[in-house]
Nucleic acid binder design. Structure first.
Lengths: 203, 203
DNA sequence: CTTAGATCGAACCGATCGGTACGATAACAG
DNA sequence: CTGTTATCGTACCGATCGGTTCGATCTAAG
């Protein structure tokens, strides 16, 4: 019996619905750009319900950010795996997916990074760190399977490219093709790291 | 007579002092993390004075961000020029300077990018865009003098590396050496773009 | 000394916001 | 039917914040 006592209307479902409905609003308007009252109205839920599920606005924000991190991580991994087994092809697919995201009209940068930039002290920073960690895991797999001499280092360079092109695409209107440029750079780095050519530079 | 009528205590000086004193506070605590009252107390100025000089908190923020953008731009250019004439050496010097910045205990990411992430609609986004534009100008000069086939494209890739490594250094504790990794990547890209090898990829 | 502009300090205002409390309603378990 | 639970809608509270106002004080020009 998944439902403990006598209950209905499925609190779990309600909670998930709140998270799903609040996510785009908090993303577009910013964490501090929308109050709890307006949020409840848009979500279609009363304040009491929201506070019973999440305890505070911070609690809701954390749940939304966590859900978002999981979603985008899954999405990126799916895009990579859909490109086959070749590491270079997977890497290219990752940046192509990013390019598609950046081109969406309501693109507003990475929600996790934006959140960390706003509430820098709070647990949002941990969320952002874990978010980057998940991305790093995917990139490390690709780097390792590509036979890179130092997969960890290459993966971190790729992480810098992924992060950088998303920020630039968001805030530098003169560079709308940031993902394409980053993709080209990533493939160049992948090639340079794959063949133990002149990657020597112990300093 | 630079002072119009009968005035003293130099309003210009006061204004500059406010900007200089408010800058680190707004940087460390975030634009919304400190109120006008506290800001005035820390700066050592009354509210009336602040509002006569800047009109609003937004006005102060814009002045502070503009001053910060000019300062960091000048700083980065100085670091590059101090490395001599070789483009590769200049590029390495840029990332070394970034590494030093990232290692400072009160490093909190790029103030301009953080501001744009917070007040995304307001003029802060323009400020951030112009900030990136200034950086791009420096990187374009270096890319052009390095003989890159497409200096604009290479410069934008370098901009992505600069931006990305700053964000990663701020929000990914497992990658404290982001600037070093970005430096290595930048030099690899510079070399690949210099010799017209396999940079072909018109799509 | 007189006068004008700059500054201070503190009080004050209106608005907003996060969070709580309460009575009413609807759904399901027993 | 009865009791429990989730939910709603609304009103409310305390705090904070951006911004204004005002009288007092200081400085320097004339």
């Amino acid at each position: 019996m998944p439902v403990p006592k006598g209950s209905t209307l499925d609190p779990e479902r309600t909670r998930a619905a709140i998270v799903a409905a609040a996510m785009p609003i908090l993303y577009e308007r910013g964490l501090d750009g929308v109050g709890v009252a307006e949020l409840c109205a848009a979500v279609g839920v009363s304040k009491e319900t929201l506070y019973r599920h999440f305890g505070s606005k911070e609690g809701l924000i954390e749940a939304v950010l966590e859900a978002r991190s999981e979603r985008v991580t899954r999405w990126l991994r799916t895009a990579a795996e859909a490109a086959g087994d070749d590491p270079a092809a997977q890497l290219a697919a990752v940046f192509d997916a990013l390019a598609g995201w950046h081109a969406e009209p309501d693109f507003r940068g990475c929600a996790l990074l934006n959140a960390a930039a706003q509430h820098h002290g709070a647990p949002e920073l941990d969320l952002a760190g874990r978010h980057l960690e998940r991305r790093l895991a995917l990139l490390t797999e690709i780097a390792a399977r590509a036979g890179a001499a130092d997969p960890g280092a290459l993966a971190r360079q790729l992480l810098i490219l992924v992060t950088g092109c998303t920020v630039v695409a968001d805030q530098h209107p003169t560079t709308p093709d940031a993902a394409r440029l980053a993709r080209q750079a990533a493939l160049t780095l992948l090639e340079a790291a794959g063949s133990p050519r002149q990657s020597r530079d112990p300093r």
